[in-house]
Design a protein around this nucleic acid. Structure first.
Lengths: 336, 336
DNA sequence: ATGAAAGCGCTAACAT
DNA sequence: ATGTTAGCGCTTTCAT
């Protein structure tokens, strides 16, 4: 298979390269006859115009870069992999490649990936909260970007984030609807905005049900499975015991449930659990976790849609993605 | 920030574009003095040469494409995400972008991703067994590729695959070393090569221990969690019961364990379980699963290394990646 | 050691 | 409607 160029196609069709270019790009300025002829030759030869020539001419890379953090946990990875499916779907549709890159927020250098420094991407999608120093650098390069799943949102950049406040409300309401009155809370004040959202949703549901928060059952220092375990220990060490726990994240629920089981307390008979995220694991732990899901593929699609608008010079509104309905499994008991 | 070109840098330094190009590419033909001067200007301006001009000149994309199947399950996704980390690490080091693409083996079209049809990748990494019709198309395009985690290997293409035969041997040996003599097998003849590897490792260990295979405890129709559940049912319905099961894949073990638990049989007190893969889930099910792991990041690195060699015109040997040691958790009982 | 000039393959402005 | 030509920004050959 030899290397074809637009020149050779032109020669074969007995026309000028311009004609071929016009046909390729669907422009007018060629007679129906030559168009047909050229199209036929292109079909026969399977000719594809050289992308790099086009890139050079248009000063456009036709790449969208995804930036993930190297420190991301496997749980996040899975979450982001699903988002990526949406990103790929929409990018392909719009004629862009998806280039994967990583940053290491550990070392304080905050160096952007080469793809971006080289201006080899027309737009960027950042996953998860992204350091302001990174974003400023991108601002300087004047490359449009969108942040997906940023817990700390802002007017300063465009984002796509799940509505965790609505999620927390729904989850807590579900407990109330099932007869629970003594409800504890495990959250994370280490992610301030996310914490506020989760807490606000929780509190709103309680308020609506005419219930007060029991401070002894409020734990806000969870970070991961282990720390959530610790939170639960402290709650169990108080005088009275809640009949249900709302956890701001499946992984917190998993840690807390482990603590409860270790003490020989039955789930959901003695204590019920509900949380948000719907990570893969939640289906497999025992008992399977009742939780609130989000459509991650959709988040990826929305992110690309916003990005395309920004690349088009528009200034679209950020998007709060509605949390889906509750995935009911076995961790919540119905009280009479 | 205005658009810099090599011409402008040349002007600023009072030299020719050629000189700047030589400096950028570390070639000799420039005096130390001009080199210093040019380097200084480049440093000050943060100039980066236009990648697309280089691509056009070199007829090289500096892209490596990853091709995954859209039908891949979340478990595979996680597995492949880790491999991807290795791929990114090594690709970056070698100066290549990583472009993510999907194929849909469902529709019988077997259309390659645009990136590949456009010759916008210098090399390809396929994840998982890949249809021969796909590979032939790539052969025609004459783009080098490597298949990672191909269960069905062949002399016809270059691959990087875990040594599951050694893994099965190690796992079975571990059961024997812990005093088990009555051992069952759940595998999948739907993936013939993989099945043969797993079975051979299993059988070799048994042979070595002077034990015969009990055909009543051999199930080879597992495909996923559900079918593995069915396999286990049939084994439990036989007259006698094994003290331990070897499963050719964590997900099979998870399905089989569910069956055992549903029948009120205790793990590992009554029946022990061991398998291979070490997927994320295995740590979280109850009891936590003892299994054989592989270094996925390393697999990604090795894949890129092979690919780079192929891109260099070499014809490297495929690689059988050693399975790691056993990850001992709680699913195997020590028999006296 | 240095610079002028050609060319990678495409697109589009401009003549015809 | 069609063809000629310049130019996107780089690298490299070839004079000087």
């Amino acid at each position: 298979l030899k290397e074809l160029t637009i020149r050779e196609i032109a020669k074969m069709a007995g026309v000028s390269p311009t004609a071929v270019s016009f046909v390729l790009n669907g422009k007018k300025g060629v007679s129906d006859q030559t168009r047909k002829k050229v199209e036929e030759i292109i079909r026969q030869t399977g000719f594809k115009p050289n992308v790099n020539s086009r890139r050079l001419f248009f000063k456009k890379s036709f790449n969208i870069a995804i930036v993930i953090k190297q420190t991301s946990s496997p749980f996040n990875d899975l979450f982001y992999f699903e988002i990526t499916k949406g990103v790929m779907e929409k990018s392909k549709e719009a004629g862009y490649n998806v280039v994967f890159t990583e940053i290491m927020p550990m070392d304080n250098s905050f160096t952007l990936p080469e793809v971006i420094l080289n201006r080899d991407a027309d737009g960027i999608i950042f996953y998860q909260d992204t350091d302001q120093r990174i974003l400023s650098q991108v601002d300087k390069l004047d490359i449009p970007y969108v942040v997906v799943d940023a817990h700390t949102t802002s007017q300063d950049f465009t984002w796509v984030t799940s509505d965790w406040q609505a999620g927390a409300y729904k989850a807590t309401k579900f407990l109330l609807d099932n007869g629970h009155r003594d409800i504890g809370f495990i959250g994370s004040s280490f992610i301030p905005d996310y914490y506020v959202q989760a807490f606000t949703g929780f509190k709103n549901a309680l308020d609506e049900g005419g219930l007060a928060i029991n401070p002894a059952w409020m734990e806000i220092t969870a970070l991961d499975e282990e720390t959530a375990y610790g939170c639960m220990e402290r709650i169990l060490d108080t005088k009275s015991r809640p009949t249900a726990m709302f956890c701001a994240g499946d992984i917190f629920a998993i840690g807390a449930m482990k603590c409860v089981k270790d003490r020989g307390i039955a789930i959901p008979e003695d204590i019920s659990f509900i949380s948000m995220d719907d990570i893969l694991l939640s289906r497999y732990i025992e008992p399977a976790l009742t939780t609130i899901g989000v459509d991650k593929v959709k988040m990826g699609i929305l992110a690309v849609e916003l990005l395309l608008k920004k690349m088009d010079g528009q200034n679209p509104e950020s998007i709060l993605v509605p949390t889906d309905e509750i995935v009911i499994r076995q961790s919540v008991k119905v009280l009479k």
